[in-house]
Simulated scan of single mutants.
Amino acid sequence: MERFDMTSAYSGESLQISRGDVTISVTDLSGDGPPLLLLHGLAGSSREMLATADALIDSFRVLLVDQRGHGRSTRRPEDLSREVFVADIVAVMEQVVPGERCVLVGQSMGAHTAFLTATPRRDLVDRLVMLEGHVAGNDDPDQAAMLGRYFASWPVPFADEATAREFLGDDAIVDAWVADLEAGPDGLQPRFEADVMERTIRAVHEPRWAEWEALEVSTLAVFAMDGMFSEAQKDELIRRRPATDRVDLAGGSHDAHLDAFPEWIRVLRAWLRPETC
């Protein structure tokens, strides 16, 4: 599996968007072209989208967003509804790039946030790309609790990065998790709370077919060969909204932006700017 350097520093302008008792961290990488927002998945951060950002900076003004409860944004927000995640992204667009329509690109939970933003705010969203994202939800009530238990099982603080890697394993997302660890007096801590992740994903697990079928902006759904969703689930997404473009990658896991990066970028650039391919 090809690895990408997750330790590189953010090089753009760091912005803080205040929303009541929550602060949303945004990095404006600038770039040439219309604005494009990148949205990470659950328990991730904008750091894992840096390689994607670098590949797009020649064509877009790229904004990296840490969603609430993640990264450098407020760690323990009280409200974790899908509606406030959407309101956060609307606030970012209205305050950072006022008067412009943005491209939204999200992975997993970030794709879910992006589509829920695009449906009611066509005035702010030009196009939408969903990598390993879906809208059907999950009717197993234990799935969110299982994720919460997993994150709570991390023996934190980790003494060092090697200890963290030994516990976390070798999945594609681990490089991003390790790079994001925050140094404290007793060791390295993740930049999220297990119970916040559980509450966040529980809201994502509610079905959103009505919003999906009402979506009007141009949309690309990208799925990985070894991703999270079955063929039936992928087919249903397109059947419910036939105007959606769909690409199935020849490789990659649910974190295909990390472990199928070259193919992911080729597909992304081709759909966003067909004339560059």
Rank of each mutant, 00 (worst) to 15 (best):
L131P: 01
Q143Y: 15
D139W: 08
R191F: 04
N138M: 13
D139M: 12
L147T: 09
G148E: 03
D186N: 11
E198W: 01
G133T: 14
G148A: 10
D195K: 13
V204T: 11
E193Y: 04
G187F: 06
M130H: 01
E198R: 07
A162C: 05
L147E: 02
E132T: 11
G137C: 12
A159I: 06
V156A: 02
D139P: 12
A164V: 05
M197D: 04
G148V: 04
D140R: 09
Y150D: 07
D175C: 06
P141S: 11
F167N: 03
W154P: 00
E193L: 14
M197H: 00
M197F: 09
V156T: 15
L168E: 04
P185C: 09
V174T: 11
E198F: 00
W154R: 08
G184W: 06
A172K: 04
A159E: 15
Q189F: 15
A162E: 14
E193R: 08
E166C: 10
E206S: 10
P190R: 04
M130Q: 12
A179E: 03
H134W: 14
D195N: 12
D186Q: 14
R191P: 03
M146Y: 12
S153W: 06
R202H: 08
L181Y: 01
V174I: 15
R165I: 14
R199N: 08
L181D: 04
V178P: 02
V204I: 14
G184F: 03
S153R: 01
L147C: 01
A152W: 02
G184E: 05
G137H: 06
A144K: 13
E193C: 07
G169P: 02
L181P: 06
E206R: 12
E166W: 09
V156K: 03
S153N: 08
G133I: 13
E198K: 00
